[in-house]
Design a protein around this nucleic acid. Sequence first.
DNA 1: AAGCTATATGTAATCGATTACAGATGCCGA
DNA 2: TCGGCATCTGTAATCGATTACATATAGCTT
Lengths: 344, 344
Amino acid sequence: MDKKATTIQDVARVAGVSTATVSRAISNPDIVSEATREAVFAAIRTTGYHINLMARNLRRKRTGAIVVLVPNLGNPFFSRILSGIEQTAAAEGLSVLIVDTKHPNADQTQLVSYLHNTRADGLIALDGSLPRALLGDGQASGAMPPIVFACEWIAHCSFPNVAIDNEAGAALAVRHLYELGHRDIGHVMGPPGNVLTETRLAGTRDALRSLGLDIRDEWFIDGDFSLQSGADAAQQWLAMKERPTALFCASDQMACGFISEISQEGLSVPGDVSIVGFDDIDIARRFIPPLTTIHQPRNAIGNAAARLLIEQISGDRTEAASAVHQVLGVELVVRKSTAPLGNK
Amino acid sequence: MDKKATTIQDVARVAGVSTATVSRAISNPDIVSEATREAVFAAIRTTGYHINLMARNLRRKRTGAIVVLVPNLGNPFFSRILSGIEQTAAAEGLSVLIVDTKHPNADQTQLVSYLHNTRADGLIALDGSLPRALLGDGQASGAMPPIVFACEWIAHCSFPNVAIDNEAGAALAVRHLYELGHRDIGHVMGPPGNVLTETRLAGTRDALRSLGLDIRDEWFIDGDFSLQSGADAAQQWLAMKERPTALFCASDQMACGFISEISQEGLSVPGDVSIVGFDDIDIARRFIPPLTTIHQPRNAIGNAAARLLIEQISGDRTEAASAVHQVLGVELVVRKSTAPLGNK
DNA sequence: AAGCTATATGTAATCGATTACAGATGCCGA
DNA sequence: TCGGCATCTGTAATCGATTACATATAGCTT
């Protein structure tokens, strides 16, 4: 009943030209005559032809797709980054493949298959915890497509990346609290080993030091960016004999978890403690109280990462463009979760 | 410097066998002798061979990928659905391509290219607002891959789908409010025309009617599922002469927006109004107050949709499996945004 | 010993587009 | 009138794997 898929042959026959001409009319219209072009397009319409991408890509030695490695797709922080990537990629005719690097049965073997150029023309990693060995091997063998890191990156590895200035963001947060009169400032950290954790921590310590404030180890609370870890941090804070009067949380999710937890204990923000978050996720401005936070241009990060990757793909790979580290600005958004010290 | 990509030919040469044998050793190991198999695998290791997926897929006439159409990737509601899809797909060796159907420069032409079987082996649509014409055409021509809808669907179209029982969810919400003593119950709706809007609305009206409560048109407030529209609804509610004492919001985001807005006006939930949300997104249990809501098993929806699609892909397409409508259960999660009437 | 089967492997066509190369045509100037 | 050049189109090789079909070998039966 249904005939087989229409091919370029069918179009060629209907249009009365060769397959070469059809191919040219499609991918390089300028070099065929006007009349032929019309005839080909008419034939395409009557036959309902759709190009077979696998055939094209096999011949052209590209895949037409880029892969995005996401650590935990369930985290809403990434959704707008993905959105930015997808926008830019789609405009270039590239498909976006997403892979969750942390899902239960993602093993090394499976991951490594994505790091190969028959799978994708390029790769954006949002996960700085990829085993370095994985990357080193492939890169050397020349079979690995260009890689761009975004948000996170691997320390002491020179892959191009797009990120924000985490130290500066942390400093903004700390200075804001200082200007409100806070002198006892703590920090809820991200997961150990993560570059964001480390840079935000470094920025926090530097800012505290340059303001001449104490750095008290017990006021640096472990977390992992999640809501739950923010709530856990709240419990630790509650248990302290001497509590900091203000906390800078390394993610908005932790800030929300923290506020939620202490509010269930009858305390409130900013009355009992001032809180600054990080990321400016959508809910931040609608939380109660609305969160004072460090804004990350998430869509722009996605756009920039995709653009950078596309340059790497099309450009000359030998040039030392691998040294590109694009840093986007952050800004402090003051809302209602911070207040002058003593202003209950 | 870097030699060309290694091919099956190289492996064959090193192993001293034909390409056919290598191919068989890879994709159907049982039919080659033990000795040969070992030799081939050894050769694969020494050459660093990776299969070229485009060549394999061209020959096998499959793409090894499924496409997920997401309306607005920026919406965190979808992240866990995607996560569920990705898990199940990855386990079957399928890549997941995501496409944002609503991004600025997504046009029909581009969309239609995804609805073709040289692009993907199957398609999961999370967007019920796809132009029906788009789907009808392709389906008829036989060139369209199997499609499964998830969460949303197209009314009066018989594509297989996975969804929750929205009417039942709405009824749960309304009955919960009724049991708390509320008799003046309003509803903040989703965007006009959306199937979720309509089914949740229908469920709400039915429940109100069967409980013998008034259905007052002015208490049905327009929204679009977003935080902002929840805040807008709050302004409308504030402006009412006679206010409902409880509202069922068709999404958690709107519930959060609503609560946030009235709290800025000095009113509170559940003191001044009880609020039930829908979806049970991550933030719901950490909002202030924690949201009473209807829980959707988002990960399970993603899993089920992927599984259903995979069945359609591998199974006999002629059988009337297109009638599959999988309905997953919802449940009411009672938290702190609802309270007995009059219990300020 | 001939015939048969089962098992293992090789040969070569095939998937559907792209593109190097060659050929055809028309126009121009000398 | 002819060579030279530009423009357009066709022929056929090619991308790298899969697989139908053919062939070879060993083991078994009678």
